[in-house]
Amino acid sequence: MRARAAVSAALASAGILLAGWQSGVHVADTRSVVAAASTGNAAESSSELGTSGTSGTSGTSGSSGTGASGAAGSAGTGSAGAAAKAGGTYDGDVVQTRFGTVQVQITVKAGAITDVTALKLTDHEGRSVQISNYAAPILRSEVLQAQSADVQTVGGATVTSDAYLTSLQAALDAANL
């Protein structure tokens, strides 16, 4: 549950980063309004999640948006017909959430987010947490193994009472009579 919550938090952070990136675009095109934009963002939101989008290869820095929705809103509705040609990778701040520590990185190409990766995701005990519980292809040799002599119960698609008679579970049950 905690991992799942952390994933949500990570996705929220991705949203925040998007805001940061949008701010970055503004910064790139209209450097003079950096301070104003940042202040506007900060004032607009009082979210407990502090974060900032720090630009990477586009060469701009210093844009920061505090909070999630507020920053996204103001960045999105800002002026400047910013040609969204910026690309690169952008790291988010390390954010303390109630689920643990989260930091994500987004990759932007041609103005679109093409990837979101977790740079850091740990629970409160400091153990790393998987970002997703995705079911991925796996080799048989990589699956948790079990020998029939070493299990106490056998799962499988529902067996009929007839099929039960020749099942591994029947053998186990007989051994434990």
Binding site: Q145, A146, D150, Q152, T153, V154, G155, G156, A157, A163
Partner: peptide, 29 residues
């Protein structure tokens, strides 16, 4: 637990649908 007080998991096997006499995998419960 199958061994009360030990905290040890129950070990479940999952049958291989291609050969129901063998186990495809295990999982601790």
């Amino acid at each position: 637990s199958p061994t009360p007080g030990s905290g040890e998991s129950w070990r479940a096997g999952i049958v291989d649908p291609a050969d129901r006499r063998t186990l495809l995998a295990g999982f601790p419960l």
